[in-house]
Amino acid sequence: MTTLTLQTEPLAVDVAVTATVLRVTLDDGRELSVPVEWFPRLRDASDLDRANWRLIGRGEGIHWPAIDEDISVRGLLAGHRQTRAA
């Protein structure tokens, strides 16, 4: 049996957030889509605050300054979620 290993670090290049979905486009062409419900601070934020994001580092993560939320690409790929607001 073989094990899949990452040859390169997955990096975000674009982000879109609606009231229901967080969608992240990666530099290799993949798109991740997860329920915004996984991230209560993002879920409860205004549309304006959801749209105000920046990439962390080279795209290893996403930061929303108005709500102090940080989400890593690696965490999204692993299926990590925040179950309640901190």
Score class of each variant (00 low, 15 high):
residue 75 G to V: 06
residue 84 R to N: 03
residue 38 W to G: 02
residue 18 T to N: 02
residue 37 E to I: 08
residue 81 R to T: 01
residue 31 E to T: 12
residue 49 D to V: 06
residue 11 L to M: 06
residue 58 R to L: 15
residue 1 M to L: 13
residue 78 A to V: 06
residue 44 D to L: 01
residue 11 L to H: 05
residue 6 L to C: 01
residue 34 V to R: 00
residue 85 A to F: 04
residue 35 P to M: 08
residue 61 G to P: 01
residue 84 R to T: 01
residue 54 R to V: 14
residue 15 V to W: 04
residue 56 I to W: 13
residue 43 R to M: 09
residue 44 D to R: 01
residue 10 P to F: 08
residue 44 D to Q: 03
residue 68 D to L: 13
residue 59 G to L: 08
residue 49 D to E: 15
residue 50 R to C: 00
residue 41 R to V: 07
residue 26 L to H: 03
residue 41 R to L: 08
residue 50 R to P: 00
residue 46 S to W: 03
residue 52 N to C: 07
residue 22 L to G: 02
residue 46 S to F: 05
residue 26 L to A: 04
residue 21 V to D: 05
residue 62 I to N: 02
residue 65 P to C: 10
residue 9 E to H: 11
residue 6 L to M: 07
residue 57 G to L: 13
residue 38 W to R: 14
residue 21 V to Q: 06
residue 8 T to P: 02
residue 27 D to E: 15
residue 70 D to T: 12
residue 71 I to A: 00
residue 56 I to D: 15
residue 56 I to N: 07
residue 73 V to N: 04
residue 19 A to G: 07
residue 82 Q to P: 10
residue 3 T to S: 13
residue 65 P to Y: 11
residue 70 D to V: 09
residue 79 G to T: 05
residue 58 R to I: 11
residue 35 P to L: 10
residue 83 T to G: 08
residue 50 R to L: 00
residue 25 T to M: 07
residue 61 G to K: 04
residue 27 D to V: 05
residue 24 V to E: 03
residue 9 E to M: 10
residue 14 D to C: 13
residue 11 L to Q: 02
residue 81 R to V: 05
residue 19 A to L: 11
residue 31 E to I: 09
residue 10 P to L: 06
residue 64 W to N: 09
residue 12 A to P: 01
residue 50 R to W: 00
residue 29 G to I: 03
residue 18 T to S: 13
residue 36 V to C: 02
residue 86 A to I: 06
residue 42 L to H: 00
residue 42 L to W: 01
residue 6 L to Q: 02
residue 55 L to D: 10
residue 38 W to T: 01
residue 25 T to W: 13
